[in-house]
């Protein structure tokens, strides 16, 4: 446990997370904007709350799209060894997970539209009981790892 896993996730993740954070920000912005419009048309409440709403959304978007991705990128590490997968992730609570190869049931790669735009994919490793992901790998890397892991994930009969 002394040695941290070696591999980092793709730095393009920063852009992808920024982009999806921004999309979220715009979606959230609908709420205070709707407040302004409705207020003009029907109600007569103070404008102040609308500005507070916008401020909160801007702060949250900054946090979610700029700060958190940087921290995530910095802390996320993984290493795929012959016998096991070692993942470290988290920003405040840092979690280190060990998954023996012989327990891996299957490996998936997934990507949504934003991830595809930046040529990224998420690798998902499932055991019989759990599911773990390594987000934002380059798509080639993800496919390569998927092949590698499913080849390594052999059935163990010796392991008692």
């Amino acid at each position: 446990m002394e040695k941290d896993p070696r591999e980092k996730i793709d730095p393009r993740a920063l852009k992808a997370w920024f982009f999806s954070g921004l999309i979220w920000g715009f979606l959230l912005m609908v709420i205070p904007v709707a407040y302004f419009i409705l207020n003009n048309l029907f109600w007569d409440l103070p404008m102040f709350y609308g500005w507070v709403g916008i401020g909160l959304v801007v702060l949250y978007t900054l946090w979610d799209a700029v700060i958190i991705p940087r921290l995530k990128l910095r802390f996320w590490r993984y290493e795929i060894r012959e016998d096991e997968i070692d993942i470290r992730h988290g920003v405040f609570i840092i979690r280190r997970t060990l998954i023996p190869m012989v327990r891996v049931q299957h490996v998936d790669t997934e990507h949504g539209p934003v991830m595809r735009l930046f040529g990224l994919a998420t690798l998902r490793v499932s055991t019989a009981a759990t599911s773990h992901r390594i987000p934002a790998l380059s798509r080639d890397k993800a496919a390569e790892l998927r092949g590698e892991i499913s080849a390594l994930a052999r059935v163990s009969d010796d392991d008692v």
Binding site: H106, V107, D108, T109, E110, H111, G112, P113, R116, A143, R146, G147, S150, A151, A153, R154
Partner: peptide, 9 residues
Amino acid sequence: IFKKERSIK
């Protein structure tokens, strides 16, 4: 839109 690939051995 959300793509998923899986290999089952």
